[in-house]
Structure formats: structure tokens, C-alpha cells
């Protein structure tokens, strides 16, 4: 079996807000080919876990260790659960997508022709090319989420953190979205927070259950009993083995209107 390099390691992390502990004694390692589903009840600390990885929240205790040859805290792709951005801000969709390129640049970064071309590719892939000159207040929730997804992907990060991407993804985009993540996973590690254990278990390679503590589950299949053992009381919507291709629509034939 091929050896895989580790990217990021959390060691005995305790973290929270205003002195209240949300995560206690969490340890986790992420390797460069991981596709990890993060599950757990609301308020269990999933978003907090991602913030600790990103350095947005300094833990009370414990260490976040980066394998600096492969990853730094400043080149992680991140899709927040709720963006703090002000959608009435005078900025275009294209500029927001291109902000994902800042990770590899200094404070004096300029956007060049190649950057604009790269942003065009990403926007076309995500089906938001026609929105490129709009400002954010002119978008629907789902469109906005794709813009933020573009921002997370454009820099081709080694590690991609997605916080509940399914929330705004409509069913017509869902299948393509998960397939895209599978493809991206060949080049980057993916950590995805989701409530939809059933759907994602067809894609993820491992699970982390976060409910104050973290339980790591080394496979993409997880049962209700295991969830109960981990102290992760969430409902399984479907079992991971069910192939979801049944629902895939075929629209590649000739259409004559």
C-alpha cells in the first residue's frame, strides 16, 4: 500500500469561546489523500474544529502542527458555514472568487491575466460564469454558496475544509458536486462537515464524530450503533452502500425543441 504523507495534526486540543470549553482533548491527523466526513449534533463543535485548524481560533490547550513542506495555515481552502462577508459590499462575484488566490501571494498581490483565466475556468465549472459581474446582493443563497465554493477551490489548496456545503446545494447540483469533490480528492485532502451521513458515506473514506470529544472512524461506513457508541446521536438517513446513481438524470442526448 502506498505511503501517504500527513498534512496536519491536532494534538490534545481544548478550545472554546470566552473560557467555555467546546472541544476537549481532541487529537486528529489528516493525510494528503484523506476524504473525511465530520458529523455530530448541532453545537457539537464541528465548526469550532475547522476554525482551530485554520488558526481562526486559538485553542486553550494543545497544538496544531503543520507539515510545513506540504501545508501552511495560509493555504487551506475554506468554505465557511456562514460567511461573515457583508453582501451589500461593492464587490463583484469575480473578485470574490479571485480572493481565493491570495493564499499564495503577498499583501501587494496583483491579479494578472492568468488569474482571470483561472477564475473563468472555476466559475464555468461551478455554473456561475454568467454571474461574474454581479454584486453579491443580487444572488440567491445557492448561487452565493457556489461563489464561496469557487473562492475555496481556485487556489488548488492541499487541504479543503467544507462546512456544511450541502445546505444550499440543490438536488440538481448535488450529484455533480460530490462527484467533483471525489475528483478533487485525487489532488487534495477534503474535510467535509455534513448532516447527511447517508449521502456522504458513499464518498468519504473516514468519519470524525464531534460532540465535545472527537471519535475517529477509519472507514466510510458507519452504523447507528457505532454512532451511539461514539456519543454522536444523529440519525442515519440512508446506509452508505446505497448507490445514488439511481437518481442521476441523463440529459446528454440530443434535445430538439
Amino acid at each position: 500500500m502506498q505511503e501517504h504523507n500527513w498534512l496536519l495534526r491536532l494534538e490534545n486540543i481544548s478550545a472554546g469561546y470566552n473560557g467555555d470549553t467546546v472541544l476537549s482533548d481532541v487529537s486528529l491527523q489528516i493525510s494528503d489523500n484523506d476524504f473525511m466526513g465530520v458529523i455530530g449534533p448541532n453545537g457539537g463543535g464541528k465548526t469550532t474544529l475547522l476554525k482551530v485548524m485554520l488558526g481562526l481560533l486559538t485553542p486553550f490547550y494543545g497544538e496544531v502542527i503543520f507539515n510545513r513542506e506540504l501545508l501552511t495555515p495560509y493555504n487551506i481552502g475554506y468554505l465557511p458555514q456562514m460567511s461573515e462577508g457583508d453582501i451589500s459590499f461593492p464587490v463583484s462575484v469575480r473578485d470574490i472568487v479571485m480572493s481565493g488566490l491570495m493564499q499564495s501571494r503577498g499583501a501587494m498581490a496583483r491579479m494578472k491575466r492568468a488569474d482571470r483565466e483561472r477564475s473563468a475556468t472555476v466559475m464555468k465549472d461551478l455554473g456561475i460564469w454568467h454571474l461574474r459581474n454581479r454584486c453579491l446582493s443580487e444572488l440567491s443563497g445557492g448561487e452565493l454558496q457556489r461563489v464561496y465554493l469557487g473562492r475555496a477551490l481556485i487556489g488548488s489548496p492541499r487541504l479543503l475544509l467544507l462546512d456544511e456545503p450541502g445546505n444550499f446545494v440543490d438536488s440538481s447540483f448535488e450529484q455533480g458536486f460530490y462527484d467533483m469533490l471525489k475528483e478533487l480528492n485525487k489532488k487534495m485532502a477534503v474535510v467535509m462537515v455534513s448532516h447527511d451521513v447517508g449521502t456522504i458515506s458513499a464518498y468519504v473514506k473516514s468519519f470524525a464524530c464531534v460532540n465535545g470529544k472527537l471519535h475517529y472512524h477509519d472507514s466510510g461506513r458507519i452504523t447507528n450503533d457505532q454512532l451511539k457508541d461514539y456519543g454522536c446521536p444523529i440519525q442515519l438517513i440512508a446506509h452508505g452502500d446505497i448507490p445514488h446513481t439511481v437518481l442521476q438524470k441523463h440529459i446528454d442526448g440530443d434535445i430538439n425543441i
Binding site: 485554520l54 495560509y74 465557511p80 462577508g85 457583508d86 480572493s99 491570495m102 499583501a107
Partner: peptide, 27 residues
């Protein structure tokens, strides 16, 4: 002019800017 992109992105979404820059507070 020099820091246009950094200023734009910090202004739009400070939390996200912290994921790519260590100078957000300074700015």
C-alpha cells in the same frame, strides 16, 4: 494602490482574510 487586493478582501470578509494573511490586524 499597493495593497488594493488585501484592503478589499479584509474589508469584505475579515474572518476569511485571516485564512490567507497574517497581517489582517495590522492592516
Amino acid at each position: 494602490a499597493l495593497f488594493y487586493r488585501t484592503i478589499l478582501y479584509i474589508s469584505y470578509d475579515e474572518a476569511y482574510a485571516r485564512t490567507f494573511s497574517r497581517h489582517v490586524t495590522l492592516f
